[in-house]
Computed example of a mutant assay.
Amino acid sequence: MLNTSSFKRGEPMDRIVYDLCGRDERLRFSPYCWRVHLSMAHKGLAYRTEPWRFQQKEKIAFADHDKVPVLVDGDTVVTDSFEIMRYLDQTYPDAPLLGEGQSYQRALFFKLFVERSVSPALFRIVVMDLLEAIHPDDRDYFRETREANFKMRLEELHNPTQGREQLDKVLTPVNALLKESAFLDGEAPAGADYLLFGSFMWAHVVSREALFDEHQPISRWFEKMLAIHDGMAGQAPTVREV
């Protein structure tokens, strides 16, 4: 289970993040949930996680939504990782994640880049590992829904070599930036870093596949991201330990 104790601040927790778990409840691999975990840590907000699986729709029916993350903050319920990040900026304005105006628009563009270019490449690398990491009761559901979406079998989608080639291409501008900057958002991580890192954490938790060359700037950035917020992500259980 994700340990949030290292960055808890404030009064006893009335915040809950509903969080996707796998075959072992300690496996937390949703890229969207990881965006929220890091954003909560960035804001220094105390919360607890509530494990959720793909077919437990009734568990989050109160949110009028069928996917996680779901954030419960007192009487407020927020769905969708990007909307949660925006809510956190509006409600807890210290340490901005996305910013406003032009900064927000650039963050929105980067979100779309991650979801439409980076994540599809990662999916080709780790899809069969991901299927194995999912709870056995959810595997048929996962296969049926994803194969309907992609219009092919998961075994056809799974091609780590092609996925890494695709990933290297789409990461070219990211690597160029990280040659000049410690993080995507400058000297310290913020929203853009969390948007991208969430997808890499997804792959990191479920797979033993190498994602990139260790000499690439993004590899060094990933190691730094594992260490931020008292090593919250770096301490998360993966399939290599569970």
Rank of each mutant, 00 (worst) to 15 (best):
L2K: 03
N3I: 08
S5Y: 10
K8V: 14
R9W: 00
G10I: 04
E11M: 09
P12I: 09
P12G: 08
P12V: 08
M13K: 07
I16H: 02
Y18K: 03
C21R: 13
E25P: 03
R28H: 13
R28V: 15
S30C: 03
P31A: 11
P31K: 08
H37R: 15
H37Y: 12
M40P: 06
G44R: 01
L45K: 08
L45M: 12
E50S: 14
Q56F: 01
K57P: 01
E58Y: 00
A61P: 04
A61G: 05
D64L: 14
P69G: 05
V70W: 04
V70T: 13
V72G: 01
T76N: 14
T79F: 01
I84T: 04
Y87H: 06
Y92I: 07
E100I: 09
G101I: 06
S103W: 02
Y104I: 04
A107M: 10
A107V: 03
F110N: 04
K111N: 13
F113A: 02
S117W: 11
V118L: 03
S119W: 13
F123P: 00
I125W: 09
M128P: 00
M128E: 11
M128V: 07
L131F: 11
D137R: 14
D138Y: 01
R143F: 11
E144P: 00
E144M: 12
E147Y: 06
A148Y: 01
M152G: 01
E155F: 04
L167E: 05
K169S: 12
K169Q: 14
K179F: 00
E180A: 13
E180R: 15
S181W: 06
G186N: 06
P189D: 10
A190F: 12
G198Q: 04
F200L: 12
M201K: 05
M201N: 04
W202C: 09
A203I: 09
A203E: 06
H204L: 02
V206R: 02
R208L: 09
A210S: 14
E214Y: 00
R220H: 15
E223N: 09
A227R: 12
I228S: 00
H229V: 04
G234I: 08
P237V: 08
P237Q: 05
P237S: 06
V239Q: 02
R240Y: 00
